[in-house]
Amino acid sequence: MEEPSADEIYAAFEEKVKRTIYIDNLSHQVTETVLKNALNQFGNVTKVQFIPTFFTPCNVYAALVEMESVKQAEEIIQDMGDSTLMISGMPRPVRAQKAKMEMFDDRPKKHHKKIACYWMDPSHQNFDAVNKIKNLTKKHAAEVAYLMELQLAEEEMLHNQQSETLKANFKKYELIDGVQTDGTLKHLAARYGTQLDDY
């Protein structure tokens, strides 16, 4: 057997990326098995891996699901975009999109060239721009964290609001049930001369 060349390895990786679906808006209850079964309904899953979260808050939980073929992956992404797939809980649907190379942990190098790097000395004439950029990086990170916080707060609000709606709905069902069981319904039917057979 001949060793595959670096180009071949990279091409195989590119193909794998195309076959892979990135899924987020997952709850932490979702395990590899659950996810695999969920997507096996629409195609053949060959691999599932979760993206570890070191910096994003715990509610950002995402996974890469590798399908058997590019076509399958594309169709599933399309379908999941059109409707709402729920995994391990309701009603918040999961979100699917095409995987990107940078999402993979085990991606091969594209070039064998070494990455060039050099030190810029503080005596350099443009060095004050350096500090500005460093500060900007920090500022941007803070902005990202803030937006994430806002999103979380909004998620919580929607969650609470939907819980309320659902509770109200159950009350309605209970009310209907109650009307049936205590005979009020029959009473009313008799009164208005309608038949209850259909119910």
């Binding site: 808006n25 409707s83 797939l85 729920m86 009603p91 918040r92 649907p93 939907q162």
Partner: peptide
Amino acid sequence: ISTSHYAQPNTIAFDMAMEWRTR
């Protein structure tokens, strides 16, 4: 609760799911 499925358009779950989708 434990299964994975697409919501049917005539359910409360679907409406709520659409709210999430919009967000």
